[in-house]
């Protein structure tokens, strides 16, 4: 019996090895996924950022129509890169609302003038409060919200041209 006990440390080490080896050979994923996916949007009301687009409140998302919620900033370079694809989504009849984080009205206006305005509403989130409540760790991020104010999907990083059909499909699924 005692002889068997002497092998316990080696067994414990084998277990440790299995854990570490599994971690080492799994493709590493450094994206920070939101814990809010599958849950209801947090309650918020944001003032308008620019004169020609209204502000944004969480109640907007409970009108039965699925839509996209885009977190962006004028100082963010991938946000510029994704703007043509957001315009394409708008052309497909998708309603996109936005949270502009850590930004100023003038800079956002310039940004929209240069890259086009795909947004129906833009909320001014100067302290990143709503961004953090969404579980977003950076810009840009795009959330698919169903018609009942529930977060269905989170897209991290800029929306590429090849992401457009997937987002359209996700919206369709959320609506049906």
């Amino acid at each position: 019996m005692k002889r068997v006990l002497l092998w316990v440390p080696l067994g414990a080490f084998a277990l440790l090895f299995a854990v570490v080896a599994s971690g080492l050979f799994r493709p590493s994923d450094h994206l920070v996924h939101s814990q809010m996916v599958g849950k209801a949007l947090p309650q918020f009301t944001l003032p308008k950022m620019v004169p020609d687009a209204p502000g944004l409140a969480s109640t907007t998302f409970t009108d039965g129509k699925p839509r996209l919620l885009n977190v962006f900033a004028s100082w963010c370079i991938p946000c510029m890169a994704e703007s043509p694809n957001l315009m394409a989504l708008k052309q497909h009849g998708v309603e996109i609302d936005a949270v502009a984080v850590r930004d100023t009205p003038r800079n956002v206006e310039d940004f929209l003038k240069r890259f086009g305005n795909p947004y129906a509403r833009i909320g001014d989130d100067r302290q990143s409060a709503v961004q953090l409540a969404l579980g977003s760790s950076g810009v840009p991020e795009t959330y698919v919200i169903d018609g009942h104010g529930r977060i269905v999907e989170q897209h991290i990083g800029d929306v590429r041209a090849e992401d457009v059909p997937a987002l359209l499909a996700a919206l369709k699924k959320a609506g049906g």
Binding site: L6, P9, L10
Partner: peptide, 28 residues
């Protein structure tokens, strides 16, 4: 570089596994 991690892990297995096996065989 994950290859380096694998190398150190292999060393770890040889040294510690060997030492613990020696422990189990000899300490009794």
């Amino acid at each position: 570089d994950p290859k380096r991690g694998a190398f150190i892990l292999a060393l770890l297995v040889i040294y510690i596994g060997g030492a613990l096996a020696l422990f189990a065989l000899r300490v009794g």
